[in-house]
Design a protein around this nucleic acid. Structure first.
Lengths: 203, 203
DNA sequence: ATTAGGTTTAACCGAATGGTCAAATGTATT
DNA sequence: AATACATTTGACCATTCGGTTAAACCTAAT
């Protein structure tokens, strides 16, 4: 049953993804994953020998999926400002559908920083801003951005997009008292963050 | 021995802080904390009955310490721009000395959001931007900030300061290839982030 | 010196957890 | 129908972990 086979493995993988993202590596229980997938715990170990192996598979898949969302911006033929607006719209929309990913990834990275190096090799994520800088060298004359400050800019953009989700618990707690829902806050953020960055870098 | 007593309890508390911040609630082991404090595991339970109690004590102390760093800005008699520069300088300096706090807090908040509500009640952190907005109402005529967008601004400022530490593993992995140390990156960030925000909100 | 009370320890307990195994079940091939 | 092979399961194991207990230790007061 290659068909059923795939189904089982996929069900396991999806269950594992949900549980790991929700509880983290340390908090996740193999039994939970098995129950969630509607199978026996031994079958988990049949498909993925150990918890570590299962976790690594899940983590790499998620990290790849997330980092990939950063990439398409660089292929589009757009001005910097258009790219910035495009990025915030797309990336925040992605996070709206996967709101727990930021917290999960940041946490697991801190728990095991070594994993990142492997990840960054598999996905070629290096010198990403250099490419961007080359693409817009002429255009950047009108902006307060040099090659040196590109990393600062990139991290800032990532921060503005990712942080609200990573700190959702805090933000919700505070916004509540201003009776402003988190969803509305995020929806408004797509435009706010984009304009914020563009204003910030303009000469 | 009230003197020795305090010493033991303090040693335990400090050890617990280190271990919890490093491994998180789920990853931390009572035995590790005991060993780290140079005492017996039973003595841990003698001073702090359960792991939960110990963790709560540690977490609340850390959260209070960290959130407190946000407060002084509001007491100073400074212009907005001065406050922004002051904040980034002070807050990032604080994080330089406690680089693992952001990851720890964000993670534990996601793992147990309910705890936040209790915390936010103990520390009165509410409507903080309303105070700020009132203080600078007149001055804000020259900026693109309304009362509605204050939360967006506040979250953005926090993001720019906190995120690099929460994502340190990632940033280091990427910066490495640009042979720029994390420390240098952070040092430069104090000025970069401040100017970034000021530019962004100016009319 | 003895007592009393807080402090510290070694040994232990029960539950939970990651992982294993032999048996059972299903399935395709001959 | 019989064989061979992959899939699935229940029962089980060893270890780890949070927590307990009873006894030992220390110190100050009588």
């Amino acid at each position: 049953m290659t068909e059923n086979d795939k189904l089982t493995e996929e069900r396991i993988f999806e269950a594992a993804t949900d549980v790991f993202v929700d509880k983290g590596m340390d908090g996740a229980r193999m039994q939970d994953i098995a129950s969630y997938a509607g199978i026996n715990k031994a079958l988990l170990h049949y498909y993925f020998r150990t918890k570590d192996q299962l976790f690594n598979a899940v983590f790499e898949m998620i990290a790849r999926k997330m980092l990939k969302k950063f990439a398409p911006v660089f292929d589009e033929n757009l001005t910097i400002e258009e790219k910035i607006r495009f990025f915030f719209k797309e990336h925040i929309a992605f996070l709206q559908e996967n709101p727990k990913l930021p917290g999960f990834i940041l946490n697991e990275i801190n728990r095991n920083p070594a994993r990142i190096k492997i990840l960054l090799e598999n996905i070629h994520f290096e010198k990403l801003w250099e490419k961007l800088y080359e693409q817009h060298k002429a255009e950047l004359e009108n902006y307060n951005i040099t090659e040196d400050t590109m990393p600062q800019l990139m991290v800032s953009i990532a921060a503005l997009s990712v942080f609200p989700f990573a700190a959702r618990g805090l933000i919700e707690g505070i916004l509540e008292k201003a009776d402003l829902g988190f969803n509305k806050f995020i929806e408004e953020r797509k435009e706010f963050a984009a304009s914020f960055v563009i204003k910030a870098i303009k000469k």
